[in-house]
């Protein structure tokens, strides 16, 4: 990514209930609040909610695609500040905060429910260039 690029395009995504089941199977996170409405409601939620870690996985994919696989994280974190439900459109926004002299990129991404102001997820990552061994240029 050229250093002059300060922010990436925003993208909109709507999770389906089937996405949550697929993620539960792949990650091993079978907490019923992610697929069973009754369990979700008895936990005080309005209905089933998206795994926070699925939102974080989407952020990782977004950063990977925005940097075309040329960077990988050295470290990153996400704060889960609100719940996202299936069939609710969310927007991904990302920007580059800093390009360090050692080649690391510091970037920030948020996931916000469309129509709301406060993000449901706030992430920050320190990315380092992928070595040729890490990626396939083909």
């Amino acid at each position: 990514m050229p250093p002059e690029v300060q922010s990436w395009p925003s993208h909109v995504l709507t999770y389906r209930a089937s996405d949550l089941i697929r993620y539960a199977a792949a990650s091993g996170d079978f907490n019923p609040i992610h697929y069973d409405s009754e369990s979700a409601r008895s936990a005080g939620l309005p209905g089933i909610v998206v795994h926070g870690m699925l939102n974080m996985a989407v952020v990782g994919r977004y950063l990977d695609m925005m940097t075309q696989g040329r960077y990988r994280p050295r470290e990153w974190k996400a704060r889960f500040k609100g719940f996202v439900q299936p069939d609710q459109a969310v927007r991904l926004d990302g920007k580059m905060k800093r390009h360090d002299p050692d080649g690391a990129l510091v970037v920030a991404v948020t996931i916000t429910i469309v129509g709301e102001v406060k993000p449901a997820l706030v992430a920050e990552a320190v990315l380092i260039p992928s070595t040729p061994r890490d990626r396939d240029d083909g």
Binding site: H11, V12, L13, T14, Y15, R16, D19, R22, Y23, A25, A26, S27, G28, D29, M53, L54, M56, A57, V58, G60, R61, Y62, L63, D64, M65, Q68, G69, R72, P73, W76, L92, S130, D134, R135, D136
Partner: peptide
């Protein structure tokens, strides 16, 4: 399986342009 369980945003469905390991894959190593 983990890679395919990460949905993509509108207009990108089905596109998998990089071969990177999903960054959060370690969560599946319980």
């Amino acid at each position: 399986q983990f890679d395919e369980a990460i949905p993509l945003w509108d207009g990108f469905e089905g596109i998998r342009p990089t071969d990177s390991l999903p960054w959060t894959f370690p969560v599946s190593l319980a």
